[in-house]
């Protein structure tokens, strides 16, 4: 019996009126995959100055209902998290990712803030994670999964605080892929889940009324840390 695989592939070749591709053509396509080239890249995300990129990132993130707070140093992370929780009447308890950016953060110094690492639990009210990059063109945060950064931290708790070092703001999606290729790789080392987050979760499924916090977080708060190096 021929397999579904063979059936589909031969149906495709019949439809295209040719047999399997020859080695030359395959090599050409292989090159297209090995050396990916950018298509048209919008000017909006392209800016020579870092300050310009950061300004675009903040403006775009705020357009999609994220809130952005700029911090002078990593020392300000814990107090900023405590303030955010207080402002929204949330318990002083967060689930944190184990990203390097947090290694010097002394959570307990910020009043009674409790921070616990590990995967998200169903009743966690807030999480704090790092971002691999911020993409200016649409105010998008790029997060990578890994042993220290379980994916559910980004989705289960209704409040999500993301720490983004200013040095990690890039202009465009292509810039983000470029950085990932250079630093992590897109082969076997590529993280299992790459999540792009653009604002808090939302739905307009009931009478086209926009509501935030459908399944994912209702609030997305970005702490943009000056002077910090990349989270990776």
């Amino acid at each position: 019996m021929i397999s579904g695989r063979e059936r589909t592939l031969s149906a495709i070749r019949d439809a295209l009126g040719r047999g399997a591709l020859g080695p030359d053509e395959k090599a050409k396509l292989e090159r297209r995959l090995r050396y990916p080239r950018a298509n048209v890249v919008p000017a909006r995300g392209q800016c020579d100055s870092r300050e310009g990129l950061v300004a675009t990132f903040i403006a775009e993130a705020e357009r999609v209902n994220a809130t952005v707070e700029r911090l002078c140093s990593g020392d300000d992370i814990a107090p900023a998290v405590a303030d955010f929780l207080r402002a929204h009447n949330l318990p002083q308890r967060v689930r944190v990712a184990g990203d390097a950016v947090f290694k010097d953060v002394r959570w307990s110094d910020a009043g009674g803030l409790e921070a616990e690492a590990g995967p998200a639990a169903a009743d966690d009210s807030a999480s704090v994670t790092g971002a691999y990059a911020g993409i200016a063109e649409t105010g998008t945060l790029m997060l990578l999964s890994g042993p220290d950064s379980p994916t559910l931290l980004n989705f289960l708790p209704p409040n999500h605080i993301i720490v983004l070092p200013e040095g990690s703001v890039v202009g465009t999606y292509e810039d983000a892929w470029h950085r990932l290729r250079a630093e992590v790789g897109t082969g076997i080392a590529m993280p299992r889940v790459i999540t792009w987050i653009t604002g808090p979760s939302r739905t307009a499924d009931i009478e086209q009324t926009l509501l935030l916090g459908a399944h994912g977080p209702r609030r997305l708060h970005v702490l943009l840390v000056d002077g910090a190096t990349s989270a990776a």
Partner: peptide, 13 residues
Amino acid sequence: QDLSVYTTFTTGP
């Protein structure tokens, strides 16, 4: 929207 809220690239288990 310029981009949907979540765009996820998932590779394997």
